[in-house]
């Protein structure tokens, strides 16, 4: 029997109430998904913090590299025309 083998890590997402998205709240160790949900309930929703839980194996998450942040996100800064405030519309034009 695999004594002392560490439980895998899970990321926990909570929907705080109906109509909102699930939001990442933290992580925990559990042997399997069912235990992860049970533990997430105990660790992250003891005070009515949520109405729904997701657990995802941490190993299944692919993250962007912080070193690529400039390349990934900066180009958006010079595309101001993607925002409505870029366009001038006369004051007398309504509902636009």
């Amino acid at each position: 029997m695999p004594d002392r083998s560490e439980f895998p890590l899970w990321e926990v997402f909570v929907r705080t109430r109906g109509g909102l998205s699930h939001r990442h709240v933290g992580s925990l160790h559990a042997a399997d998904a069912a235990m992860a949900v049970q533990a997430a309930r105990d660790v992250y929703t003891r005070r009515m913090e949520g109405v729904s839980l997701w657990v995802v194996p941490s190993a299944a998450i692919t993250a962007s590299d912080p070193g690529d942040a400039a390349q990934l996100f900066d180009p958006a800064a010079d595309k101001v025309y993607r925002h409505p405030t870029f366009y001038t519309v006369p004051d007398n034009i309504r509902h636009i």
């Binding site: 695999p2 004594d3 399997d32």
Partner: peptide, 16 residues
């Protein structure tokens, strides 16, 4: 608690 941890792992492996 060792037997509980071992049992949980064994159960997870069997299910997988």
């Amino acid at each position: 608690g060792a037997w509980v941890r071992d049992a949980a792992i064994a159960h997870a492996e069997k299910r997988a």
